[in-house]
Design a protein around this nucleic acid. Sequence first.
DNA 1: TTCATGGTTCGATGGTAGTCGAAGCATGAG
DNA 2: CTCATGCTTCGACTACCATCGAACCATGAA
Lengths: 229, 229
Amino acid sequence: MKEGPDIARLAALIGDPARANMLSALMGGRALTASELAAEAGVTLPTASSHLAKLCEGGLASPRRQGRHKYFSLASDEVARVLEGLMGLAAGHGHLRSRPGPRDPALRKARVCYNHLAGDLGTRMFDSLMARGLIGRGGDDLALTPAGRAFVADFGIDLSALDAGKTRLCRECLDWSERRSHLAGSLGRAILGRIEDLGWARRDRQTRIVAFTPDGETRFLERFCPAPD
Amino acid sequence: MKEGPDIARLAALIGDPARANMLSALMGGRALTASELAAEAGVTLPTASSHLAKLCEGGLASPRRQGRHKYFSLASDEVARVLEGLMGLAAGHGHLRSRPGPRDPALRKARVCYNHLAGDLGTRMFDSLMARGLIGRGGDDLALTPAGRAFVADFGIDLSALDAGKTRLCRECLDWSERRSHLAGSLGRAILGRIEDLGWARRDRQTRIVAFTPDGETRFLERFCPAPD
DNA sequence: TTCATGGTTCGATGGTAGTCGAAGCATGAG
DNA sequence: CTCATGCTTCGACTACCATCGAACCATGAA
């Protein structure tokens, strides 16, 4: 009865509609101000402020002052992963908040999951990296193989900077639309960043959609999901 | 603002202390009656009944009548996985419900995660199966290799019966204490069942602890986690 | 049939927490 | 300095929902 961690606190924190909306918005990956989050949640500033304090207190979000603005973002990749899991369950049981509109296919194709690529393209990339032996399951967790390190460096990512960070290099995250894993961790973040820098795609400001240019998508597929034959 | 699935409903469902206690109890894997769950949650029968109706309605639990008893269990492996994820977050943020008591080490060593083995032994088994190439990541998901099929059959598990089922054979589930994957899916279930049948271990009735006999643990390690050298 | 047990439904109660307006602080701009 | 903006705090209101006792229903036993 009272063994294990306290789920109820956490779930209740996520369980309020206003807070859930804020967290969903933060799944977009960019830090948002209190006012923006208030609008996002459909609530006035005072209530939003109260909610945000609770989210930070509860370890789900973290604040950052900048000038006279206060920016909020998700506290960690793990938070994003749990939220993605919840979305999967909710979607599976047919509890979509909005009818699947025109944005839905785009969301399923490629979207940002906190700070890394998710959706069809994200899972395909993960599978291909696995199949080609560029990442693999080491003793304890997901790891970049030597071949993988070369591949990533060749893509223009500075691995030494990533290695220094304290977040894990490779993590897997369960995709709510595909029901399969995609790549998270600092490497996942870096890859998405590089994709944007190269102009292959850009994040939509309002939604979680990652919009690839036709050319960008071709190049992405060539590099990350080549035909296995 | 209103894209994606409705997290709030689900999280609120889990967020009530009484319901969370019930779900935690059901993580033990065995089906429990309404009365038992009421006791588990520290609440009277009428309230428990109301909660259970909501859990079923929300797709988290599923009922089964048997005689004049009504048994409840978790609705799916996915539910268990999400709960495990929540526990990980809660534990990570230091929100343990009870101070880590004497049962805690035992829980971390080996426990049941809905219907399969979790904890230190569970993750070690998973890693070893991976390292030996008995399971591997196919195109889409985790799969049993030919060598793996032979290995599992040799352990005394009837694969044809499992293949017929509609739940996936291999799934991975993130372990809240180890922060790594362990094996879920119908195979994970079958392996734990076989371990009990062989008398290597038995589940504690009250907690989620899986208690191995000294001899059983030795045999388990020999078969599932042999030294890599 | 009658009794007992397990579960549900109902109505009333109470506490908790989300909500907002208004006032209070900061910080930055002019 | 003075004003404006962004956020927080306060107090009061409200609504929801968890909770329980009591009555009710169904199943199984005697």
